[in-house]
Design a protein around this nucleic acid. Structure first.
Lengths: 212, 212
DNA sequence: CCAGCCATAGGACGCGGGACCCATTCTCCT
DNA sequence: AGGAGAATGGGTCCCGCGTCCTATGGCTGG
C-alpha cells in the first residue's frame, strides 16, 4: 500500500483526486493539504511515501514547499496546469522526481506514483514512458478479464438492479435458459456463488457505469 | 437521482470529480467530456439534469459550448480556475445558472448541483448562500432513512458480498428466520424485491464502506 | 402504564435460482 | 479443414429464497 499526500488549493481537484486514488487497490491517500504550510505539517505527521504537489498555490508555492521538505523525504511529483519547461527545470532542481500535467489520465498518474515509489526518477530517466509502462497494472483481475462482451452486458444490468432471470431475458432478448447459462459462466469466472455477489463484484470492478 | 455530465480538459480533475460525485447517494455522473465538442454530443446522448462546465477548454471554450447547448436543456454550472466578474457576467448571458471556483469544497458543489436541479438560478438569486444551504443535505430516500441499526448491519454485510442466509445468520449470531425477517423489512423500506437489488442499493447509499 | 417499535424466532408454502446435463449455430484462428 | 470458444436454447432436480402469519421479550416515549 503506497501512502500518498496530495496538496492543491483547488478543493474540487483535491477531494476528487483523493477519492479516485483511494479507489485504486494499492494506493492510499493518508492526508490532503490546501496550501504549502499544511503540506509541510501533514508530511511531518504522516510520513507518506509519495507527495503530489500543485505548483500554483497561495501562501507557499509548490516549488517553495518542495524546498522545505526534508532531504530523503517522500518522493514528490509536481502536478501542474500548464506544462512549462522552465518550471519543469526548477521543479527538478528543487528535488522533484516527477512532473505531470493536470490533463494526465488517472491511470498514468497511478503508474507514475508507483514508479517514483519504486525509486525511479521520471525527470532523469532515459525513457520515462517505458518506466511508466512497467508500473501500469491491469485494472481488472484475470477472472474479470476473461468475461465476454455478452457477460459484461448481463453484469451491467445486474449491477443496475435488474436481478430476476425474467427481467434479464427480456432486456437481452434471449431465453431464460441462456440467461442462466451466462450467469453460471459469470459465477465461475468471478468466483462468486450467486447473482447478489456477482452484482457486488460487478460494481467493484466498475462495470456498472457506461457501456463496454 | 440527479444525472450529471462533467466537462473539463484536465483529466485528473475530471476523473477524480466524477468518482467523488458518484459517491454521493443522490448524484450520478452519467458521462464525462474532455472538450466542448464531446460535451455537446454527450448531452445529446444522455440528456443530463445538470452540466458542470469548465470555462477554459481547448477547441471549444466553456462559454462557446454553453451557447451551443439547446434552450431548455440541462441546468449548467460553470466551473473555473480564477473567479473573474467579467467571465461571470458572460457565463450568465450565455445561459449558465451557476458559477463556482475550482477551490469550492465538494459539499458546496453538491449543494449547488441540487439547487440548480431544483430550478434555482444561483446567479440571479437574492441570497445564493441561503439557497445553497437549503440543499446541503442529500435528500436520502425516506425508505433508507427508516432503516434500523440492525438492518444497516445486515446491509453492510450484503454489500460486502455475504449473501446467503446461512452466512448472514452466522455473522450476526441470529437464526435464519430472523435474517429473513430483517431482509423482508429491508426489501419493503428500500422498495426492492430481492437481496441482489438490496446489495446494489446499499452500495449506492454508501453503506458498504466503514461503519455508520 | 401501556402502545408501539425493534429484535428475536418459528411454521408453511410455492416459485425461482443454481447445479449439472445436453445440443446447435457462428465466428475466428490455426 | 478442423478446433476452440461464444451465444443461443433446452431439460431436470432440489434447495434456498421470498411471502405470510404468529409470537415473545425488551426498550422507549407519551
Amino acid at each position: 500500500m503506497i501512502r500518498i499526500i496530495i496538496a492543491d488549493d483547488h478543493r474540487l481537484l483535491l477531494e476528487g483526486l483523493a477519492q479516485a486514488l483511494d479507489g485504486i487497490p494499492d494506493l492510499e491517500v493518508v492526508a490532503t493539504a490546501n496550501d504549502g504550510a499544511e503540506l509541510i505539517e501533514a508530511v511531518d505527521t504522516h510520513q507518506p511515501d509519495v507527495v503530489l504537489l500543485d505548483i500554483e498555490m497561495p501562501k507557499l508555492t509548490g516549488i517553495q514547499a518542495l524546498r522545505k521538505l526534508p532531504d530523503g523525504g517522500p518522493a514528490t511529483i509536481m502536478v501542474t496546469m500548464h506544462t512549462d519547461d522552465d518550471q519543469r527545470r526548477r521543479a527538478q532542481t528543487a528535488g522533484a522526481v516527477g512532473f505531470l500535467s493536470k490533463a494526465t489520465p488517472l491511470p498514468d498518474l497511478a503508474a507514475a506514483v508507483r514508479a517514483v515509489n519504486a525509486g525511479h526518477n521520471l525527470l532523469t530517466a532515459d525513457d520515462p514512458d517505458e518506466v511508466m509502462d512497467d508500473h501500469r497494472q491491469p485494472v481488472l483481475d484475470e477472472g474479470a478479464a476473461a468475461l465476454t462482451a455478452r457477460e459484461k452486458e448481463l453484469l451491467q444490468l445486474l449491477a443496475s438492479g435488474v436481478t430476476s432471470t425474467e427481467d434479464l431475458s427480456d432486456r437481452l432478448f434471449i431465453s431464460h435458459k441462456t440467461v442462466k447459462n451466462h450467469l453460471a459462466n459469470i459465477y465461475e469466472k468471478l468466483a462468486v456463488a450467486d447473482r447478489a455477489q456477482a452484482a457486488v463484484e460487478a460494481i467493484r470492478l466498475g462495470l456498472h457505469r457506461k457501456d463496454q
